[in-house]
C-alpha cells in the first residue's frame, strides 16, 4: 500500500491530536482519585485575619538599636526562612532589612526631615499591598494575594521571569541568581530553602500564622516596635494605634495600598 505524503501528514496530525486528547482525559481520570475538598481544613489554632498589616514604631526601633538589639528581627526572620547571606550586594537576598529615611521616603525628603530622622532606622519589607503590581504582572499566578491579604509566593510555580521585580515599586523582591544553599550558614530544617532561578520575599510568616504564632520579626523585637494585626478588625491593636497616631506609608501615591505603616510621631 502506498501512502501519499499528504495522507501521511494527515494521519500524523490525527495521531498527535488523539494522543493529546487521551492524555487530557487520562489527566481528568486521575484527578478523580484526588481527595475531596472536605479533606482539607484550616487548623483551629491558626490566627485568622482578613487584612494582615504591620505597624512599625520607628522611635522604639531606634531605642532598641541604642540598647543593642542587634537587629534581632532581621536575624530571626532570615534564620527561620533560610535566607542566604550573599556577600555580593548586587545579588543579595533579603526579606527584611534596615535603611535610612531618605531611601524609604525619597519623595518626602527635605533637609529638616532628614535631620530629624537622621539616626532613625527604617525597616523595609514587602508591603503586602492591597493592589499589588507584582501580582498583576505575574504571568503564572506564582505570586498572588491570599484571602488574608498576604501577597504569597508559590515557589513551585515561579518561572523566574522577574517581571514582578520590575513591577514592585518598593524593591521588596529578591531573585536567586545562584543556588542559595552555600550561603546559608545556620539552617532551619523546618522550612525549605529556595532553588536558583526563583524570586522570593517576605511572606508575613504565613506558616507561623497557621500555627497560631506571630510573625518572627514581631516576636523577636525586644522593644515591641513591630505590631502585627488585622486591619479589618476594628479592635485589633494595629487598628487602634493607627486611629490614634500619625502613620505614613511608602509611596502611597502609587495607589498600591501598602499594609506596612511607619509611626513617625
Amino acid at each position: 500500500m502506498a501512502i501519499k505524503r499528504r495522507d501521511f501528514l494527515k494521519l500524523t496530525g490525527l495521531t498527535l491530536v488523539g494522543t493529546a486528547a487521551s492524555a487530557a482525559v487520562g489527566d481528568l481520570l486521575t484527578r478523580g482519585e484526588a481527595k475531596a475538598e472536605e479533606e482539607y481544613a484550616s487548623p483551629p489554632e491558626a490566627l485568622k485575619g482578613k487584612r494582615w498589616a504591620m505597624v512599625i514604631d520607628v522611635k522604639k526601633c531606634k531605642k532598641g538599636k541604642e540598647k543593642g538589639c542587634n537587629e534581632k528581627c532581621i536575624e530571626a526572620c532570615h534564620y527561620l526562612h533560610n535566607v542566604p547571606s550573599i556577600p555580593d550586594k548586587k545579588k543579595e537576598i533579603k526579606w527584611i532589612w534596615e535603611d535610612e529615611f531618605e531611601h524609604a521616603f525619597p519623595e518626602q525628603t527635605n533637609e529638616y526631615l532628614e535631620e530629624i530622622f537622621k539616626d532613625i532606622p527604617f525597616l523595609f519589607l514587602c508591603n503586602h499591598c492591597d493592589n499589588p503590581p507584582c501580582v498583576r504582572v505575574c504571568p503564572t499566578k506564582a505570586t498572588f494575594k491570599n484571602e488574608e491579604g498576604i501577597v504569597m509566593m508559590d515557589f513551585h510555580r515561579c518561572i523566574g521571569c522577574r517581571f514582578c521585580m520590575a513591577a514592585c515599586p518598593y524593591g521588596a523582591r529578591s531573585f536567586n541568581w545562584v543556588d542559595p544553599r552555600p550561603y546559608i550558614e545556620k539552617v532551619n530544617p523546618e522550612y525549605p530553602t529556595r532553588t536558583k532561578g526563583v524570586v522570593e520575599k517576605c511572606l508575613f510568616c504565613y506558616e507561623r500564622l497557621a500555627k497560631g504564632k506571630m510573625p518572627a520579626c514581631v516576636e523577636a523585637c525586644p522593644e515591641k516596635a513591630l505590631i502585627f494585626g488585622d486591619l479589618a478588625d476594628e479592635n485589633s491593636e494595629v487598628s487602634k494605634i493607627l486611629r490614634e497616631r500619625v502613620a505614613i506609608r511608602r509611596k502611597a501615591e502609587l495607589g498600591t495600598g501598602p499594609a506596612v505603616f511607619y509611626l513617625i510621631d
Partner: peptide, 9 residues
C-alpha cells in the same frame, strides 16, 4: 528565565 524548564506554566 530563571527556571526555563517551567516556561509552559
Amino acid at each position: 528565565l530563571g527556571q526555563p524548564m517551567r516556561v509552559l506554566n
